[in-house]
Amino acid sequence: MSKIPVIVIVGPTAVGKTSLSIELAKKLDGEIISGDSMQVYRGLDIGTAKITPEEMDGIKHYLIDVTEPSAPFTAAKFQAETRKWIEAIHGAGKLPIIVGGTGLYIQSVFYDYDFGNSSEDKTYRAELERLDNTVLWQMLEQKDPESAAQIHENNKRRVIRALEVMHLTGKPFSEYQVHNELNATYKPLFLGLDLDRELLYERINQRVNLMFEQGLVLEAKQLYDQNLADVPAIRGIGYKELFPYFEGRSSLEEAKELIQKNSRHFAKRQLTWFRNRMDIDWIQAGTSTTETEAMNKVTTFLSAK
């Protein structure tokens, strides 16, 4: 059986992945699977820069708004769901396109991941449970920077599991998870969008300003008022920075500046991870030739035997 071709568009937040993916999907009769670990959650719209129905422009999207924030959506779940949709889209005669910035999730689709199913050390786990999120994440960053770049500080369950696996196996969690051979079912083309760092940071700052204009504070307050502030999904960038403001411990301007700062740092970690962990064909974003260059690469890829 021939391999299923899949176009994968990755890159840091605010670099322009969404608009490029829509244009490619229109020209290539494609459908899009979101490769974003946050956009699966209902109610997290503005803070995750979730694509709107208007922006979709008639292109069908998958893995957006599929679960509640209180229900964890793991990398293993993403792998299974994405593989299912790839085959369904291909079976319908259309081109599967994955778009997003969650490298660990996207990589898991095309490589046979081992999701840390080794044995447990309950005593060691209990010791870790007593530590706060920041201390745990710093431990992970020291032992395995690649995993720390992909696991959010407030995803305590995942951080602890990574530390536990390394404790049991004696090797980095990032090495334990992924096998080097591509899954034989798929033929992926990994396209990465890059942008001058200053321009990217300017875009990120502007995006956060727009989020505030669109009603981010109200969205975050509604989640906060539902007592969801401790749910890992809600502790993501764009929400957690506003909680001190709701509690009278910071100003709104301080919260905005912190969201911008954390988003810039996140973009830097994304770029580092993609460059170190995946074989990506990079394209300069934000130019008059970006879409043409991407189309040429995809056309060549699809026509190759």
Rank of each mutant, 00 (worst) to 15 (best):
I33F: 09
E253R: 12
I97A: 15
M166P: 02
E141Y: 03
K27I: 06
E202P: 00
S19P: 01
G101C: 12
G100I: 08
T300G: 11
F274I: 12
Q222T: 14
Y105V: 12
V231H: 05
E153G: 04
T67R: 03
V159L: 01
G116A: 09
G100A: 05
K84P: 04
D196F: 04
T74E: 07
K60H: 13
A304H: 13
V6M: 07
L195H: 03
L128K: 00
V208K: 03
V298I: 15
Q79M: 15
E87S: 11
L210N: 10
Q206L: 13
Q79S: 15
I204N: 06
K84C: 11
I237K: 11
D225C: 05
E241L: 01
F243C: 04
D132R: 01
W282Y: 12
L228R: 08
P96S: 08
V165I: 13
K143P: 00
E257D: 13
R197T: 15
Y224G: 03
E247L: 06
T48I: 05
L193Q: 09
M211W: 14
D114F: 15
L242T: 02
Q138H: 06
L258P: 00
K256D: 04
F266A: 14
T300M: 08
V217R: 01
D132M: 01
Q226W: 06
K171E: 13
H179I: 07
I9V: 15
L104C: 08
